[in-house]
Amino acid sequence: MIVAARERWLGTILLVILMAITIVPFISLFITALHPQRTYPPGLTWPETAHWENFAIAFQSARMLELLWSSVLIELAVVPVAILIATLAGFALGHLRPAGGRVVFIVFLLGLTLPLEGIIVPLYYQIRDMGLLNTRWALILPLIGLFMPFAVVWMRAHFVNMPTELSEAARVDGATTWQLFWRIHVPLSTPAISSLAILLFLWTWNQFLLAVVLVSDPTQRTMAGALGAFQGQWGTDIPLLCAGSLLILTPTLIVFLVFQRQFVSALLQGSLKG
């Protein structure tokens, strides 16, 4: 009994420490954003007068509406296509298990080991030769390809644990492979698909390196990528820079807080099956 209580208290203390490590940087950004412009706030000190107008100035200066629209367009082009391809590939590799599927799966696993920094130079020249530099397609197409290794492995891990009895019963009733996939396995895969969609949304929204290298027009980038241009313009104005950073981070925090139950549910489902 004493040991269980000690472990419970230890777990609570560790959670509080981790929560503090996560929250303190956001608190620091928020407090700094409320200081007068072109000042250097000394640590976590609340200003005498909170300058809430810094958020409005940052919103207008960074052209947030245009950046928001650009990010939404990129998200709508990347996430649904990546989810569809990954779900189809995961179903084939994890449930249908075709000849040569193990080799294909190993190729996707190798794709997980490739660092983005190692392929950014050849990717730049390839996008340039395709005539797509400085367009949203320069972000959309590479992101779909770069997400495939993780997305396919994620969905395969789900489908490989699906009971074969469901497919056998559907086959007896005359279901085709497409009907088997769309009417039976996809509805049962909602937690895995929704959690993958959340991850891809966050990764696309926060994409910085590709946006800076492949797109020179800030209004064609993601919001995180446009932070580079905003930093170049307001890099010496720390409060305004912090206000802009919080505005860019807010949508991702909202999405995660709204869908955190689905995300945790999918992770727990995968751990129980594995």
Rank of each mutant, 00 (worst) to 15 (best):
L267V: 14
F256M: 14
H95K: 15
G131V: 00
I13N: 01
H35F: 14
G232R: 09
S189N: 05
R136V: 02
I83K: 00
I120R: 00
L166Y: 13
G90C: 03
L240D: 10
V121L: 09
L132D: 01
P41M: 09
H185W: 12
G90H: 01
L10A: 12
S28Y: 14
P149I: 08
A4I: 15
A175W: 10
F256Y: 13
L188H: 10
I23E: 12
T87K: 04
Q60A: 14
T87A: 11
L34N: 06
P187L: 09
I248V: 15
G11P: 08
I57T: 08
Q207G: 05
P47D: 07
W46Y: 14
P98C: 04
A266V: 14
V258G: 11
L196W: 01
A82V: 05
I27L: 14
G232F: 08
T49Y: 14
P239G: 10
I238E: 13
L146M: 10
R171D: 02
V72C: 12
I23T: 06
L143Q: 02
L146T: 08
L14G: 03
G90N: 06
Q207Y: 00
L84M: 09
Q260Y: 15
D217W: 00
L143E: 02
E53L: 15
P149W: 01
Q262T: 06
N206L: 15
Q220Y: 12
T177Y: 07
D237H: 15
Q269G: 02
M162N: 05
T45N: 15
P98M: 08
L268S: 11
L132V: 03
L123P: 01
R128F: 10
M223R: 04
L93R: 05
T252I: 15
V81R: 02
L88F: 10
I254S: 10
L246V: 04
T176E: 09
M64T: 13
T87D: 07
I193N: 03
V212W: 06
A266H: 14
R156T: 12
A175N: 05
L188W: 11
V264Q: 06
G270P: 09
I106N: 05
C242I: 10
N161F: 11
P25C: 03
V79Y: 01
G90K: 02
I193V: 11
G131N: 00
T219F: 06
L132Y: 05
P122T: 05
N54E: 04
L139R: 03
L241T: 03
S189K: 07
E48W: 09
P98W: 09
E66M: 13
I31M: 05
G274W: 06
M130F: 08
L76S: 05
M162A: 04
A56E: 13
Q207K: 04
R183N: 12
V24W: 08
L139V: 04
H35Q: 12
L209H: 10
Q269V: 15
V121S: 13
C242L: 12
A197E: 06
F201I: 03
L180W: 11
N206E: 13
V78K: 00
V215G: 00
I119D: 00
R8I: 01
Q231N: 14
V107F: 09
I2E: 02
G94V: 02
I248M: 15
H35V: 09
P41D: 08
A77G: 03
T32M: 14
R8W: 07
A77C: 02
L34C: 06
Q262G: 12
